[in-house]
Design a protein around this nucleic acid. Structure first.
Lengths: 248, 248
DNA sequence: GTCGTCGTTCCGTCTCACGGAACCTTCCTT
DNA sequence: AAGGAAGGTTCCGTGAGACGGAACGACGAC
């Protein structure tokens, strides 16, 4: 069964760490062994150095990801630069709307949420910083697609369309129409396509004409006012775009 | 030269990743080889699987930390739970003061910044999310110490006191006085002890009577108004403490 | 008591990590 | 154009140490 290719050990370590992506809470040794399909003795052996290096930490009933990962995570460019620049604009947007504000980037066929601001009240969305959703089901995703490089757009549209709610767009032609509408308007809407009861308005952040990120405001469907939110989101995204073009 | 102990490969991988903590920008293969003191061929061999696993990514002039690290970093308990709970209170505090707001936790003898909110204008502090400063030189640190377990306090005070500015407290007795004052007042001040020209007001977040984090507001020394900021920070920290005690 | 589960330790096999050396490619210098 | 320095890549012989099955000790449940 051992094939040939490469670094088996690193792969196992990553399997162990990835375990924590799905399982929320602390994981015990046996849990990890089960979900990775690795022998117990192997997991046990690998865990020790991970603890020493602070990639894992012991918590009450098992193990959790360690502080080193947190520190390294903050040094990933998407965070340290983009986020730094985006936060003030997100603050403004939040102050103006008092609704949940998201910043997202593209990774493969998903949008990865890089930042989120929300107040006490707002809708509680399934999104999480570092979390993923299909590009085609979210406002941010559609904004990213509409202003992506053409080959990226083709590549993504070549994939089977995923569905998160009954409102998710699963017809390719409808989606293409939607994308060209976004390209014209400069704003993307999500009408309960990612979560029932939740809508959002998104606008792309452009550097040299290409979307590298997108901002969005999410609201309960009852308060969905495109006419009011659209300009606010566009203004914030444009401001951020200008700032980044100046920096880079 | 090979000693004995354990996982040499993981250690090397960590050395490579840690390289990015000090060096800000992208690193090239030769840069990494130099700063890790590893042979070029070794670095080259280790980097390939790191790219495959998305722990590293290629950027214009070299390599940078990959998105996987960002995603895992967001799953570290200090983030996913504490931050989630704290953000709304930090929003409030920011809205009330329009000054930079920090959330910090203790790790060893340092405070690690878990979250930061700042507007367009504010002072630009050397702090960074995921960054570290000595406990004894910051408001957050002193708030954490004053409400830490006694053995933790002893342990930290047993270390040599570090100095970041001429105002940093480096006399053990003065520091002990300061800590007991914080214990009484429930608020810690930093008067240019971490950065010249910057002051801050901090209050501990208590769960079961022990500080697990602290909130602070940082202001330029000219606008330092303890009487106004103290209550605001205390209110936010108390609100967060209550919320956490309810959750846990 | 017995059984199931969890964490830990041992150890024989043999894979694959290791890094020196040689090579290729740019890019700069003269 | 020739020479040189530095970055990146490939090759390969050696032996350290990763691997995981198996057996063990420690709880806790029923």
């Amino acid at each position: 069964m051992r094939r040939n290719d490469d670094t088996s050990m690193l792969e196992k370590v990553m399997l162990i760490l990835q375990t924590f992506r799905t399982a929320g809470g602390p994981q015990r040794l046996a849990d990890i062994a089960r979900s990775t399909h690795l022998p117990k003795s192997t997991v046990h052996r690998l865990i020790q150095p991970l603890l020493d290096l602070n990639l894992l930490q012991r918590v009450d009933g098992g193990f959790a990801l360690g502080l080193v990962l947190f520190e390294l995570g903050e040094l990933v460019p998407v965070k340290s630069q983009l986020r730094q620049a985006a936060l003030p604009f997100m603050q403004d947007l939040f102050a103006a709307t008092h609704q949940t504000v998201h910043l997202g980037v593209r990774d493969g066929y998903d949008v990865v949420y890089a930042e989120k601001i929300h107040g006490h009240g707002g809708v509680d969305l399934p999104s999480r910083i570092g979390g993923r959703l299909p590009l085609t089901c979210t406002g941010i995703g559609k904004a990213l697609l509409a202003f992506a490089l053409p080959e990226v757009l083709d590549e993504v549209l070549g994939q089977p369309l995923r569905r998160l709610t009954p409102h998710s767009i699963t017809d390719l032609d409808l989606l293409k129409d939607e994308v060209s509408r976004v390209q014209t308007a400069g704003v993307a809407y999500d009408r309960e396509e990612a979560a029932v009861g939740g809508c959002c308005v998104a606008a792309p952040v452009l550097v040299s004409g290409v979307a590298i990120a997108a901002l969005s405001v999410s609201v309960p469907v009852a308060q969905f006012q495109p006419a009011r939110l659209g300009p606010a989101v566009r203004t914030a995204a444009l401001g951020l775009s200008r700032k980044l073009n100046r920096l880079w």
